[in-house]
Computed example of a mutant assay.
Amino acid sequence: MKYKRHFYSRIPNTAIFLAITTLFFLKIIIFILVKNQVISFSLGGGSDANYYDAYAQGSIDVALNIWPVILRYLNNLGLYYREFISYIFLFLNLLVIPISVAKLAEVKIKENQKYYFYIFLICLLYPTLFFFVFDVYRDVFMVLSFLIGCLVVKALLTTTNTIKFIFLFLASLVIGWYLAALRPYLGLAFIGALFLWSIRFTKRRIVLLSTLYLVALFIANYIGVFDAITEYREGFEEGEGGSTLGLNFSNPIMFIPNFILSTLGQLFGLYITNPSAIILLLIETLPFFFMLIYVIKNIRLADNFVRFLIIFFVLYASVWLIGNDNLGTAVRLRMYNYLAIYISFFYILRLKKLYSVTSEVVSK
């Protein structure tokens, strides 16, 4: 197997590192300016942070998920400071999350410096995740929790020790339950992938499985499995959530066409409503799209962990693409799909290069 050098392989490491450094300090400057109210922008879901803060301080007693419960617990311990938490989120965004993604992809700075730098660059470029470091939104915390869960699953799928396997499996279930407490379908998709990761993929099998997948979705919708989800989706048209695709999922005959349109509009960001959507399309979706194509083309290299990520990708997307009709919310929901592909891409890219080097050494 000959390793093919792509255009991104020709960019000098110094240029990538310079871009990383620039982004790193630019984000810090923007953070300081926003915190000092020199500049401001709307996140669309700004009321979330106010609700979480009110619950943490006891003004509200209805918890919609476990995140405000955690904040109230910190407040009871005297450790809750709304401003300080945003600084922690900035630290997670700038360092912890990129390092975690690199670790999951098994990309090490000494052995794969260029790939390591690219992971940092892509994570730092990701605008949506940065938008939620400015207050006590749950998104950054959820991303970190998801990545930690993936680290545990990765250890589970690579261990040969039976006792360790049982312990890690139980730990993965607990993390899945915890993710479900943060967002139900995120945790359920995580747990579902935990049981389905053994499904093997080939290019031919992907076509077959995709067809069966759409048929299964159609049948599930026809017998009413998604009734609660589609009813929730209809609420977007009646609320003040902003731009909606306006797809009618109540018609079972049109379910598959509507699902495909929802995927194109929300997961792939092709429903353009404003200049921000164009920026997100270029910065977030375009890299994701090319990475997804690469993963599919090299699906034969997918091991247990990559299969887990792909299964999670499908299960998680299946729910929110049916249940969500708000384009602003879509960019928050799809972060886990994008991260799953980021990790899979660099994981496979590293494996492909490793196999190429190994085969060249053997041939000599």
Rank of each mutant, 00 (worst) to 15 (best):
L92W: 14
N93P: 06
D53Q: 11
L74E: 14
S42V: 12
K108Q: 14
Y115T: 03
I28A: 02
Y80D: 04
Y116K: 00
F41N: 03
F24A: 00
I70L: 13
V107N: 00
S100Q: 09
D48Y: 12
T22S: 15
A49W: 10
P98Y: 04
S42A: 13
L74G: 05
I70V: 14
I119Q: 01
A54D: 11
R82D: 10
F84D: 08
K114Y: 04
N36E: 14
S59F: 15
N36F: 15
T21M: 08
I32V: 15
I99Y: 14
I39H: 04
S47D: 10
L92G: 05
P68F: 02
L43N: 12
K108C: 09
K27G: 08
P98N: 01
K35W: 06
Y87N: 08
D48I: 08
L90Q: 13
G78T: 10
L43M: 14
A49G: 05
F89P: 00
L104F: 10
I28T: 05
N75V: 03
A102I: 05
I85Y: 06
A63R: 13
L71F: 02
S86Q: 01
R72V: 07
I28P: 06
D61I: 10
I88Y: 05
L23P: 04
I70K: 01
Y115E: 14
Y115L: 06
D48V: 08
Q113L: 13
F91Q: 05
Y52R: 00
L71N: 07
A102M: 07
Y80W: 10
K110T: 09
A102D: 06
I30A: 08
I70E: 04
V38T: 15
Y81M: 08
I32F: 12
I109S: 09
I109L: 09
E106R: 15
A54L: 09
F117K: 00
L26N: 02
G45F: 12
F41Q: 01
K114F: 03
E111D: 11
V34T: 12
A54M: 06
